[in-house]
């Protein structure tokens, strides 16, 4: 689907209407519940996550597509203010959002060969824990 027609000059009316009629859109989804067995698996992944050169390569060809420039509203790597409300939801929720997608982020964040440990290490990298 193409939306290249949407250029700044023609957007003003739409943005005005959207703001006028609907108010600001929610940016952080409500915290979902994570089943205990899944939460345990994710906690284990975070506890053993290692930022190896291989994981860094995976990050560069997946997460970095959006999280470096902030495309599609993605929080930028290292932007602590943007990550804070997401971190407050807990590691398990961050993992669920990564696996299932959130708003414009697709499930798995475009990393088709990542396992739980890889995702855990990449999340820690982006939120500034490494």
């Amino acid at each position: 689907m193409t939306t290249r027609p949407a250029r700044r000059a023609r957007l003003r009316l739409c943005l005005f209407l959207a703001g006028l009629l609907c108010g600001p859109a929610a940016t952080i989804a409500a915290t979902p519940a994570v089943e205990p067995d899944r939460a345990a698996a994710y906690a284990a992944a975070f506890s053993t996550a290692a930022l190896t050169p291989e994981v860094q390569r995976k990050w560069a060809r997946s997460c970095a597509l959006c999280h470096v420039r902030g495309e599609g509203g993605a929080p930028r790597m290292g932007d602590s203010a943007a990550w804070q409300p997401r971190l407050a939801q807990g590691d398990a929720v961050l993992m669920v959002n990564t696996l299932e997608g959130l708003e414009r982020m697709p499930p798995l964040g475009y990393c088709m060969d990542c396992e739980l440990g890889d995702f855990a290490a990449m999340i820690q990298l982006m939120v500034g824990r490494r």
Binding site: T3, A6, L13, C14, L15, L17, A18
Partner: peptide
């Protein structure tokens, strides 16, 4: 570029 179109669709 795409922001206005997306907001219109949501509206």
């Amino acid at each position: 570029d795409d922001a206005g179109f997306i907001e219109l669709v949501k509206l």
